[in-house]
């Protein structure tokens, strides 16, 4: 079956309005992940509707604060907490904020540096 699989870059200002539009059109939460880039992070938020998937791509700096999407998709709290704890991404307005104690590992933000 033909189904879409697109990655769409987006700016921080348009991010939350776009997520709200996804929610209103009936898209469900797919996954959230972060990749470390020199000087910052690439965040990917994937949404699924019927069999199409669409990923919003945010490229941010190390100190940029991203708003959590839990007010719109409450189920995102686990994956956003993981992003914050393992990568050091700064997320605000999390509905269930574990304050970097979701996995309770000894090493701080292990994915922030190599090795």
């Amino acid at each position: 079956m033909e189904c879409k699989n697109e990655i769409r870059p987006i700016d921080l200002e348009q991010f939350l309005p776009e997520v709200i539009r996804f929610r209103q059109s009936g898209w469900r939460m797919g996954q959230i992940c972060a990749v470390r880039t020199p000087g910052g992070y690439e965040l990917s938020y994937t949404f699924v509707k019927d069999y199409d998937i669409c990923t919003l791509r945010l490229s941010i700096g190390e100190e940029t604060v991203v708003s959590s999407i839990t007010p719109i998709y409450p189920c995102a709290f686990i994956q956003e907490n993981e992003m914050a704890e393992l990568f050091g991404v700064r997320v605000e307005n999390l509905s269930h904020d574990y304050h970097h104690r979701l996995y309770r590992i000894e090493r701080d933000t292990p994915f922030k540096e190599k090795g």
Binding site: M29, G30, Q31, I32, C33, V35, C75, I78, Q79
Partner: peptide
């Protein structure tokens, strides 16, 4: 990155 079904 692996997003497994139980996470969801």
């Amino acid at each position: 990155r692996l997003r497994t079904p139980t996470t969801s």
